[in-house]
Amino acid sequence: MDDCPPLSRSIAGRVAIVTGAAGGMGRATALLFAAEGAKVAVCDLDAVGCEAVVAEISAAGGTALACPLDVGDHDAIKLNVEKITGHFGGIDILVNNAGISAFSPLDAGNEYDMIWDRALAIMLTAHQRMVRAALPWLRKSDAARIVNIASTEGLGATPGDTPYVAAKTGVTGLTRGLAVDLGKEGITVNCICPGPIRTGMTDKVSEADKAVFANRRTALRRYAWPEEVAHMTLSLVLPAASYVTGAVIPVDGGLTARNA
């Protein structure tokens, strides 16, 4: 029997794209990747936020590039991938993290249609467009990794959240489909489903309400920090994570495991 080839647990020198990287889980991921030695393209609709994250990375001795990007704009995706590859010379890692809140009652009329269209454009269609734009470069990498950030809303549903639920459920399916399509090339594609996380989307929830929800729904009885999700993302993009693909992994404090 042949021996296993060397398996590296380092992403030093790898080029990573992180969308939605100006805050929350995206920012935590960008900072962690840079701390591990990766060259990080910080992509977000918030141009000021992009620059702030790049400044944080640079101050810590890391390497990053600010890439203001509306992932709902197909042409902008292609232009930014060109910018990133022109600057860094390639792409090894893609983290599709950009997202929006999309609560809307079914009887909201035109407003519902607008929220539905935007939810799918930002949180599903943009994911496959980012993959397709980056794919020629990922194919040149010896350890290409794609991680899509979905949600536990892609594994269940909250009332009034149908556009978000539909988009995130689509992400889990997209992940499996891409994993099958790209597996023969050694490109892994995985999905993380975060549960209750302390991000901008949950800032409006009071600490008291957070505690009630966490105690009622999660096994760990708390909300997570974005950094805890970022570390799972890091695990999936390591060169050594070479036999994990098509996985849908809850990072939810036991929310999906708990019945009562």
Score class of each variant (00 low, 15 high):
Thr175Trp: 01
Asn110Met: 07
Ala76Asn: 07
Val40Asp: 07
Gly24Gln: 10
Gly177Arg: 04
Ala22Phe: 09
Ile146Thr: 11
Asn259Gln: 13
Thr85Gly: 09
Val180Ile: 14
Ala55Ser: 12
Tyr243Cys: 02
Thr202Met: 03
Asp113Ile: 03
Met1Ile: 14
Cys43Trp: 08
Pro226Gly: 03
Pro194Gln: 05
Ala179Met: 03
Thr218Ile: 02
Asp203Cys: 09
Ala121Tyr: 05
Arg198Asp: 10
Cys67Asn: 08
Asp70Gln: 03
Lys184Tyr: 04
Val42Lys: 08
Gly13Glu: 04
Glu153Asn: 10
Gly156Ile: 10
Leu124Pro: 01
Ala76Met: 06
Ala247Met: 02
Ala55Gly: 13
Glu56Gly: 12
Cys191Val: 00
Arg216Trp: 01
Ala60Gln: 11
Asp70Asn: 11
Ala38Cys: 08
Ala224Tyr: 00
Ala22Glu: 08
His87Lys: 15
Glu153Gly: 02
Asp113Lys: 15
Arg217Tyr: 10
Asp73Ala: 06
Ser242Phe: 00
Lys39Pro: 13
Ala66His: 09
Val229Arg: 00
Lys210Met: 07
Lys78Met: 14
Glu227Phe: 06
Gly253Ala: 00
Glu227Ser: 08
Ser235Pro: 02
Met130His: 13
Val53Tyr: 10
Ala224His: 02
Asp203Asn: 07
Ser206Pro: 05
Ser141His: 09
Arg132Val: 12
Asp46Ile: 04
Gly13His: 12
Ala121Glu: 15
Glu228Thr: 00
Phe103Val: 15
Phe213His: 03
Asn80Cys: 14
Ala16Trp: 04
Ala108Glu: 12
Pro105Asn: 11
Thr85Tyr: 14
Ile93Cys: 03
Cys50Met: 06
Glu227Cys: 03
Val237Ala: 01
Leu255His: 01
Lys184Arg: 07
Val171Asn: 02
Ala126Phe: 05
Ile115Trp: 08
Glu36Cys: 14
Val244Tyr: 03
Arg222Pro: 00
Ser58Val: 12
